[in-house]
Design a protein around this nucleic acid. Structure first.
Lengths: 202, 202
DNA sequence: AGCGCTAACTTGACACTGTCTAGTTGCCTG
DNA sequence: CAGGCAACTAGACAGTGTCAAGTTAGCGCT
């Protein structure tokens, strides 16, 4: 039998270079944004040569994928955390995970951008698939209590996900000091109620 | 008086290197995706040296910004085109610009990604601001007939924009052959009606 | 125990990227 | 008709990711 823990290989350098590199990448990410995240810089910060990461990741995209996978994990936890603070009532719980979504985007700006960047990520990676589906699962189960429309439960999920994701993307521009006409000067809690969400009649 | 046309400078090379470089960039974009778009490659395709673009754009970000600005123009036109084919009725017009939105995203994949990529774009550029606000204007005027909620007309606009943008982003994953649980197997026309959109009582 | 073998890691090279600095050239203006 | 200037070229430089060849340390095997 093999547990995930036994797969940890303790080699000669420091405990786990793979984990160290991921952490270094996240540090670079919130210190200097996406531009600052570089394979060679990660290696340097971890104290190894620039070619060392190749033994742990499939190129730069492998490293980015691992970082994003860890990002999804934190993302999921943030939504759950907010949901547990909310009243045990479907609508309050839904609003809570949305606030968690937005808080994560606010507090992990560059990581959030990377997570939803379609470039340079290896979507065949199973760890990424696992973590991202786990995040979606939180959304799905929080949407489940509501009455679904023409498109079934997935229609409700996509409606909510799109709304909050789009709102997060637009809100980002504000923080970057862009100030378009399309940057929302509106609270999310004022637009969520405009979805036609109903509870089924018991 | 100065018209936008008189500002065209005809120098010695070909008519307008600036315009040629933008077109070359767009070509590279839909031939090889975002990875293929490079300052040096644009220059090569335009038949000039690698340092020539510097006289027309403020670095790579200037070129990308110009490409994106042109993208927004086409984007706006696509939405208007669909809207004019629709019945002259508020809801049909709104659905039409959403279909235009999604069609543009489908037909200009890499350009669409670049347009909403927060990196490497110069958001202080006034041409970009002009074109992107012009796109938003189409959305705003199509949303105007509806009854607005707590957050006013901008609340309605952001709700619709977020919904269609989020849907476009999620749909992209399908086409890339990712096949998550979060890729919608749903038609947009089935989830748009789930927004609580009402016309004011006359 | 001793001896490979293998995986981790280093060093160096390569083809790229964007940007900066000098030159060169051709057009327009005074 | 000169002078100036903007467009453009050629070359260099610091970075990037990736590949090829060495080195070294720890493990299993007879």
């Amino acid at each position: 039998m093999e547990t995930p823990e036994t797969s940890g290989k303790t080699h000669r350098h420091h405990g786990d270079l793979r984990e160290t590199l991921i952490s270094a990448g996240i540090e670079l990410l919130d210190e200097g944004g996406l531009e600052a995240l570089t394979l060679r810089r990660c290696a340097a910060r971890a104290g190894v040569s620039h070619a060392a990461p190749a033994h742990h990741f499939k190129g730069i995209s492998g490293l980015l994928t691992a970082i994003v996978a860890r990002g999804y994990r934190k993302f999921t936890l943030t939504m759950i955390e907010e949901r547990e603070k909310a009243a045990n009532e479907p609508y309050a719980r839904l609003e809570a995970i949305c606030q968690g979504y937005l808080r994560f985007a606010r507090e992990n700006d560059a990581l959030f951008v990377l997570m939803f960047s379609p470039q340079k990520l290896d979507f065949d990676d199973e760890e990424l698939a696992l973590q991202s589906e786990s995040a979606y699962e939180v959304l799905a189960e929080t949407c489940a209590p509501f009455q679904h429309g023409e498109a079934g439960s997935q229609g409700t999920e996509i409606m909510v996900w799109s709304l909050v994701h789009g709102f997060a993307v637009l809100s980002r521009r504000n923080r970057s000091g862009i100030a378009d006409k399309m940057t929302p000067a509106v609270h999310f809690s004022d637009i969520l109620p405009q979805l036609a969400l109903k509870l089924p009649t018991p």
